[in-house]
Amino acid sequence: MSSALPKSVSKRLSQIGIILVLIIGALFAGFPVLWMISSSFKSNTEIFAYPPSLITDSFSASAYRTVLTDPTKVRFFINSYVVSTLVMIFTLFVGIMGGYSFSRYEFPFKQALNMIVIGVQAIPPITLLIPYFSLIVLLRLYNTYPALILTYMVFTLSYAIIMMTGYFNTLPRALDEAVMIDGGSSFVALWRVLVPISLPGIVSVGVYTFMLAWNEFLFALTLTKTLNMRTVPVGIQMLMGQHSYEWNEMMAMSVLGSLPVLILFLIFQRFFIAGMTAGSVKG
């Protein structure tokens, strides 16, 4: 109907069209990332060279060397790793138990509590910031790891509980009942039976939690003060004010700061996507 062209040719043409559009889309999505990587290998004088190019004569990894040998900057990374890992562990521990409770028990106010857990996700961080500031100072936690770990859990925890409840709901109750008939407690049923078979769900929650913590900015900016307590996202900002724009170093640090999430993403793509779509798509 549409043309005199043989079917195979018109199919071929539409395929070429689709690939062209795909490439334009890929440039939109990927070019900034490519530019970040490219700039991290330039010398600072060539960042704004005219005309710009992806690979310059000064191509070198010296910006990376500078970042990785500067104890202040390495400390940003250590802080981020420590805080994110601990947030992930605590969130999983508390979230698994919360999810188990919602999935396996009927109790008074269950519906209301469930609504609160979901609703917490809608609370804007900026609303919590001012009271958190007072509370953290009051608890003498200002400028410490626990200040960040505790406050990050407000976002990671409700996510973990919702996801774990959903995951446990897919597992038959006969599993825990078998343990209880053998004389085991619900505690044994949870940690010895349900947790091992829920590993895919737990990994997905863990990875997502780690990422949320790794990316957090507002609380880290406000609840820490000294350079040695700063995390990567805030540390990068400090770099910006401090020097007269060492763009290549900032880009190198951006690449290094994105690597953990990027690597986690590439390994656990399936889990990530499950986590991303959980809020909007019904299985």
């Binding site: 979230g95 188990y100 509370l135």
Partner: peptide
């Protein structure tokens, strides 16, 4: 169920109810 939820309840009280 409340025992399992207790850490959650404590945290959410400190981290959302009290601050609000």
């Amino acid at each position: 169920p409340f025992a399992y939820l207790s850490p959650t309840l404590v945290l959410l009280t400190i981290l959302s109810l009290i601050p609000i």
